[in-house]
Amino acid sequence: MEVRTIKVFTTVDNINLHTQVVDMSMTYGQQFGPTYLDGADVTKIKPHNSHEGKTFYVLPNDDTLRVEAFEYYHTTDPSFLGRYMSALNHTKKWKYPQVNGLTSIKWADNNCYLATALLTLQQIELKFNPPALQDAYYRARAGEAANFCALILAYCNKTVGELGDVRETMSYLFQHANLDSCKRVLNVVCKTCGQQQTTLKGVEAVMYMGTLSYEQFKKGVQIPCTCGKQATKYLVQQESPFVMMSAPPAQYELKHGTFTCASEYTGNYQCGHYKHITSKETLYCIDGALLTKSSEYKGPITDVFYKENSYTTTIK
């Protein structure tokens, strides 16, 4: 009895394709271990004539594949690729409408935090270190965002349907971005203890939790000093293409032309909904596939993004 075979390709990165001759009487799992086709788990399936010449994702289970996976995804987590594939199996079914010149995501599976993050990423200057993220990001900007969303979920250790947080998501993504040249110098002034300067680099240099107003941050924000008295913390120097200011959701007025974009969060910790506000020729609110415009805006804002380049204080 002759062994019926077909020729397929296996890959971990969709760049390096490895030619395989597979036995049609055995499952993919018996031949390769966990195997995925377009995100779908085909591990328990036997090869079919229609699979001839198709590319299958496999887990990096030998040295060659491990090197290829690390170079593309910059992670050695053995569960990463499987999590990416199972997320992709959902995100490829989502709709990605162009809204006001940006790629958004039609609401499904509690994905409003991903839509808000995706919209924000198209408006701030950011370059990702893992080629996987950078490639998928370019495709997302062009309207094909399924891979990018699935990668975000995998890097953030999230599953489809789980509630997510924009600030946490951005923080994970910033860790995989090139923020080497970003720098922030802060000064804390206390009447009792004097003053202390701190220099922050990388992710810490672009994120701040405690106030939404970048102007206020430049002037000074009140913080408790270690001595128990009130101290003032203010920005001395900022070198970065953008800054992200966050605070627990509270009524906040966004003035046209003073910011790049913002995240609105309605609801409580267990259950809520994100919308995205962007400042173009007027203010726009993007909620999944829905767009509304207004000249002014007041609502429960939790993150505001500002364009920056270089700032030095005039406070002496």
Rank of each mutant, 00 (worst) to 15 (best):
E2L: 11
R4Y: 14
R4G: 13
I6D: 04
K7G: 14
V8A: 09
T10N: 09
T11G: 02
T11Y: 06
N16Y: 08
L17V: 08
V22I: 09
D23V: 14
D23E: 10
S25F: 15
M26Q: 09
T27W: 06
Y28M: 06
G29I: 03
G33F: 04
Y36A: 05
Y36G: 05
G39C: 15
A40F: 12
A40C: 11
K44V: 15
K46D: 11
P47N: 04
P47K: 05
H48Q: 15
N49A: 12
N49P: 14
N49S: 13
S50T: 13
E52N: 13
T55E: 07
T55H: 11
L59M: 13
D63Q: 13
T64A: 12
T64G: 12
L65H: 07
L65G: 10
V67T: 15
E71F: 06
Y72P: 05
H74T: 01
H74Q: 14
H74D: 04
H74I: 04
D77G: 05
P78K: 11
P78D: 14
F80M: 04
F80A: 04
L81V: 14
Y84S: 02
Y84A: 03
S86C: 15
S86I: 13
A87C: 09
N89S: 12
H90Y: 15
W94P: 02
Q98D: 13
V99E: 07
G101D: 07
L102D: 04
S104L: 07
W107A: 05
W107L: 03
W107N: 05
A108T: 08
A108N: 06
D109V: 04
L114P: 04
L118G: 01
L118Y: 07
L119A: 07
Q122R: 02
E125I: 04
L126S: 04
N129T: 10
A132T: 04
A132I: 01
A132K: 03
L133G: 04
Q134L: 06
D135I: 08
A136G: 09
Y137M: 15
R139C: 11
A145Y: 02
N147H: 14
F148R: 02
A150Q: 05
I152F: 00
L153V: 05
Y155V: 02
C156F: 03
N157W: 05
N157V: 05
K158T: 03
K158F: 03
V160L: 04
G161I: 03
D165G: 07
D165A: 06
D165N: 13
V166Q: 04
V166H: 06
V166A: 07
T169Y: 04
T169A: 06
L173I: 08
Q175R: 13
N178A: 12
S181H: 11
C182P: 00
C182Y: 08
C182M: 00
R184P: 03
R184G: 13
V185N: 02
L186N: 06
L186M: 15
V189G: 05
C190N: 04
K191G: 13
T192C: 10
T192Q: 14
G194W: 01
G194V: 02
Q196N: 10
T199E: 15
V203Y: 15
M207D: 03
M209A: 15
G210V: 00
S213E: 06
S213Y: 01
S213Q: 03
Y214V: 09
E215M: 06
K218S: 05
K218L: 05
G220T: 03
P224A: 15
C225F: 00
C225T: 02
T226C: 10
G228V: 02
K229D: 14
K229R: 12
L235P: 04
L235C: 07
V236I: 09
V236P: 01
Q237K: 15
S240G: 06
V243N: 01
V243R: 01
M244N: 00
S246Y: 06
P248Y: 10
P248W: 10
P249C: 02
Q251R: 07
Y252C: 09
E253S: 09
E253Q: 09
L254G: 01
H256Q: 09
T258N: 12
T258G: 08
T260Y: 06
A262W: 01
E264L: 06
Y265T: 00
G267A: 07
Y269K: 14
G272H: 00
G272I: 02
G272E: 01
H273L: 01
H273Q: 00
Y274R: 03
K275H: 00
K275Y: 00
I277Q: 07
T278R: 07
S279P: 05
L283S: 00
L283Q: 02
I286P: 00
D287P: 03
A289W: 02
K293F: 10
S295I: 11
E296F: 15
K298T: 11
K298M: 11
K298G: 08
G299T: 02
P300I: 14
P300S: 11
P300F: 15
I301P: 00
K307G: 08
N309L: 10
T313G: 10
T314Q: 15
